[in-house]
Amino acid sequence: MSESAQPDLAYGKASSTVTGARYTTLDRVQPGHTATVIGISGDADPHVIHRLSAMGLVRGTEVTVLRAAPLRDPRQYRFRDTSICLRGAQTSLIDVELRGEAGTDHE
């Protein structure tokens, strides 16, 4: 498998690799892993972008995937001292940089 594909953290879907960093969307991050928000897709409706930003999903926010429903949707996330369930349609719009498993040092 090429260095640019990272299915181990992405439910079998590849994420891109740029100079060692791994980028994907939040819906592809497995439970137990943490990612840092790098932006919200410009393809999203303006009201969706506003709502996600108002919740605190802005550049630099670390998000931990806590768990998934039996069919993977919705999933529970923890960020900014809150826990919330979001659907894949919403989290597929959030671009993230993968960090690794929750509670581990990744630097």
Rank of each mutant, 00 (worst) to 15 (best):
M1Y: 01
E3Y: 07
E3T: 09
P7L: 14
P7R: 05
P7F: 10
D8W: 07
L9D: 10
L9G: 02
L9E: 07
A10Q: 07
A10Y: 00
Y11V: 02
Y11M: 04
S15N: 03
S16N: 13
S16I: 14
T17M: 08
T17Y: 06
T17K: 13
T19S: 15
T19K: 15
G20N: 12
R22M: 12
T24W: 01
T25R: 08
T25S: 11
L26K: 07
L26S: 06
D27L: 01
R28N: 15
V29F: 01
P31M: 02
G32E: 03
H33G: 01
H33D: 10
H33T: 06
A35G: 04
T36C: 11
I40E: 10
G42D: 11
D43E: 13
D45W: 07
H47F: 09
V48G: 10
H50K: 13
H50G: 00
H50E: 14
R51N: 12
L52F: 04
L52Y: 01
A54F: 10
L57V: 12
V58K: 15
R59S: 12
R59Q: 09
G60I: 12
G60T: 09
E62V: 12
L66W: 00
R67T: 13
P70T: 04
P70C: 02
L71W: 08
L71Y: 07
R72A: 05
P74H: 05
P74E: 02
Y77M: 09
Y77P: 08
F79M: 04
R80G: 08
R80N: 15
D81G: 06
T82L: 10
S83K: 13
I84R: 13
L86K: 01
G88P: 06
T91N: 05
T91M: 04
L93S: 05
L93M: 13
L93D: 08
D95S: 13
D95N: 11
G100S: 04
A102P: 06
A102M: 05
G103V: 05
T104Q: 15
D105H: 03
H106N: 10
E107F: 08
E107W: 05
E107C: 01
